[in-house]
Simulated assay, not measured.
Amino acid sequence: LLDQIDTLSGQIGTLTTRIDHLLAQADADGGGVTDETAATTGPSTVERLAEIPGIGRAGAQSILAEIGLAMTQFPTAAHLVSWAKLCPRTVQSGPVTRGGKTGKGNPYLKGALGEAAAVAAKTDTFLGERYRRLVKHRGKLKALVAVARSILVIIWHLLTDPFARFCDFGADYHTSRINTERRMRNHIAQLTAMGYHVTLEPAA
Rank of each mutant, 00 (worst) to 15 (best):
A193I: 01
I5C: 07
T45A: 13
S93L: 14
S93F: 09
T97P: 05
S176W: 03
K122R: 14
I155H: 02
H157L: 02
S150L: 06
V91W: 07
I188C: 10
E129F: 04
G68L: 04
A148H: 04
V119P: 00
Q4R: 15
A146F: 02
L23G: 07
I188S: 02
D29R: 14
A65K: 00
V153Y: 07
V91D: 12
L2H: 13
A189Y: 09
S93A: 09
K140W: 00
A65P: 04
R133S: 10
F163N: 14
L141A: 12
D3N: 15
S9Y: 02
G30I: 00
R132C: 02
I178A: 13
I5W: 06
V91M: 10
A171M: 09
E51A: 15
D168I: 01
C167G: 14
D35M: 02
G195V: 11
A65N: 03
V46A: 12
A38Q: 12
I55Q: 03
G99N: 04
A78W: 02
T102G: 04
R133Y: 14
Y131V: 05
G99M: 14
R165V: 12
G195A: 06
V135D: 11
T16E: 14
L141H: 10
D35I: 01
R18W: 06
A28C: 04
R133G: 07
R98D: 02
S62H: 06
L23T: 08
R177Q: 11
R177K: 13
D29G: 05
F126S: 10
H197A: 08
D6L: 13
H174N: 02
A112W: 03
A143L: 10
V96F: 13
Q190R: 15
L109T: 03
M194C: 11
L109W: 06
G59V: 04
Q61P: 00
K142S: 10
A84M: 06
A28I: 08
H79N: 06
P53E: 05
H79D: 05
A112E: 03
Q61A: 07
K136D: 03
T175P: 02
V46C: 10
L86P: 09
G103I: 06
L15M: 12
V198N: 06
A84Y: 11
T37R: 11
D35K: 01
V96K: 11
A203Y: 11
T76G: 03
L141D: 15
D3C: 05
L23N: 03
L159Q: 05
H197I: 07
A203H: 09
A148L: 04
S150H: 14
I55W: 08
A78T: 10
G94T: 06
A148Q: 07
I155P: 07
N186A: 14
H187L: 11
P107D: 03
D168A: 13
P95G: 06
L109I: 07
G56W: 03
G94Q: 08
I63L: 01
Q25F: 13
G111C: 03
H137G: 13
V81E: 09
F126N: 11
A117C: 10
I178Y: 09
A148T: 09
E36G: 05
T123R: 15
W83K: 01
T180N: 08
Q61C: 02
G111H: 10
P202I: 08
